[in-house]
Amino acid sequence: MTETFSQSCSSLFLKICESTLGILAILTSFTFILNFVPASFLHKYGHYFHPLLIGIVIIAILGGLVYAHLWHEKENAGAVNSGIRHAVLQGVIRYWLAYSISVYGFAKILKTQLQSPEFNLDIPLGELSGFALTWYYFGYSYTLAVILALFQVGGSILLLFRRTTLIGVMVLLPVMVNIVLINMFYQIAAGAFFNSVIYTISLTFLLLLDFQKLKTAFWDLVEKLPRVSDKSGLLKNALRVVVIAAAFCTIQYYVVTAKTDTVLKGTWKVEKLIKNNHPLGPVAWLTDSKAWNKVYFAGWNGCAFSPNPYRYKADESLTGSYEFDSLKNNIRFVHPSPSYADKRMDTLVISVRNRTPKSMQLHFVMNHDTIEMQLARLR
């Protein structure tokens, strides 16, 4: 074991990676002071933060290359104890990761992270940024936030001990990969994205240091149970393909057979509503629940007629499922009957006229009321 480790320590590439990450850890540690400066300072000088991060990365890479080259030359000359240097640098990386990641864990527990400002709650869902959506989604359940925090803090504690470093890495790496993807595709702040990337790279580096252990544990060890297959293994391989193919075909069957509307799907504004040959005014919805102002066609998620022009609430709206027949130009709308106690469903046939991609007219009779609606597509 000692011989194997000393051989791996002679790799210049290992030294470059280790030195770069070690310098990066030291330099980024100085940025933690920003957590304690007044908010006014960050607002005034925050625009310098991105160039600072880029500068730190450049210095770490250049410093890592220079330090690793000098170290490698001294090692070849027998003038340096590489084992101690590896231990120190890996220790710096482990302790830096433990502090950095556990900070995010405690932020979730102490509710300084994943807390949405009150004004976000009054923004329409479709107008929220990816950052606001993510914060509200993960902050909706404090229990989930604590569970995520326990993984981050627990994994960080494991990093502080050499014997449990590999376990800590295996706990934290899936969490950090998930956070990187969220930060990338939901447009989370650049600083958070930068941190998540370098933490993930550093954890991956620590994981690969034990590549031989992982290969032995997950690849080389042979299961002791007897084989249940033909000698060639063709039957078992075919069964493996069938299992995955069956999963795909299950959903594909639903997609093909489900009657999904793609023509009407979207949000429509009611520009004109006529009930029993009497036009309804723009504020009629305040006293008449059938004075609809918006119609939502959402495919297999159903359909909703909403009286409120400013926001949608299910208990105020007429909701149900629908099927659109493009040949007959009509909609079969199935909705709960007015008497909810009997739990029956009513079917309403709606005639669609003068349909274009941007507008259409709906005509139907509901509870002895003749309804005519002129719709314009919003989105």
Rank of each mutant, 00 (worst) to 15 (best):
Y48N: 08
A77G: 07
I56K: 15
S82V: 00
S102L: 06
W96N: 10
I59R: 10
I56S: 14
A60T: 02
L65A: 08
T31K: 13
A39T: 01
S100N: 13
V66G: 11
P38A: 00
R85C: 03
G63E: 05
I54F: 15
N76W: 05
E73V: 06
I58Q: 14
V37G: 05
F30G: 10
I23K: 13
A68L: 05
Y99G: 09
L70N: 11
S40I: 00
L97E: 02
F49L: 08
V66D: 10
S100E: 11
I58N: 12
T31P: 09
V37N: 06
F49N: 08
V80Q: 08
L27D: 06
S100D: 14
A39G: 06
I33E: 05
I56E: 14
I54D: 12
L52D: 03
H43Q: 05
N81S: 03
I61W: 14
K74M: 03
P51M: 07
R85E: 02
A79C: 02
H69M: 09
H47L: 04
L42S: 07
G91F: 07
I59V: 14
R94S: 14
I61A: 15
N81M: 01
I101R: 13
Y95D: 02
L65V: 02
S102H: 06
S102W: 06
L27H: 12
L27W: 13
I56N: 14
I23N: 13
Y99E: 06
F36K: 02
H72S: 09
